[in-house]
Amino acid sequence: MKLDSALTNSRPPQYRGTKLSTRHLNLFYGPCQALRDITLDIPERAITAIIGPSGCGKSSFLRIFNRMNDLIPGARVEGSVELDGIDIYHRSIDVVELRKRVGMVFQKPNPFPMSVFENVAFGPRRHGRVSRGELQDIVESSLHQAALWEEVKDKLDQSAFDLSGGQQQRLCIARVLAVEPEVILMDEPCSALDPVATLKIEDLMRRLAEKYTIIIVTHNMQQAARASDVSAFLLMEGDICGVLVEHGPTAELFTKPKDRRTEDYITGRFG
């Protein structure tokens, strides 16, 4: 697929407010620095793609926003990360509450070993006492939003493992939606899926972007070109440490990259 035709599907970026922003962000794992001096604004209700070669810290960067890096012993963050102007690394911040607002979908579909229904209901059940009726409403609307309802409405009680890979990934998206987040982080959500399932997820992302702020990490340039409004290009510097090379509206970044390294990477990728 040619770059230009991929870009025609992409929506022109409409800047709304800024949802998330990092200022001079540094991330360390023990003595190693994984990210250096990253300053970036993530627009609200749009899709931001984080691209770059593998090992450049894309996933680490994504996990900054819901503080999943906290789980890694020795991880340390410097600089500021703000959600709606609130510093999410401030010591008074509740990580659990943060993760309700900033949901995450993983590289490999990771449905829980329970029924389809229980998978979606898992989050709401943890967050408060909900009646069976409310729960049913939440599950149904989440599955609708994840474009999965029609496929699973008759097998809500079946094990989530019986679904196909693409369905499992959409189930994981529904599971996140059920908590009613504001931001959805997606870490290479299609890398384990076939092309048809991938397109379905991209379609879904486009629709979700009307309501949610989405950040997607991808090594697939075509996916970034097709599906994102804004792109940020990360690159390793000195072999270990990720830096932000360039960012901007996806159409501009792909057609008129300002940085030589971006151009090399993109053209290299598209052949």
């Binding site: 943060l98 993760r99 309700k100 949901g103 979908v105 990771n110 829980f112 967050h127």
Partner: peptide, 11 residues
């Protein structure tokens, strides 16, 4: 991945 999935929905 179960732990990650659960924490990611704010459990």
């Amino acid at each position: 991945e179960y732990r990650a999935g659960s924490l990611a929905v704010g459990a």
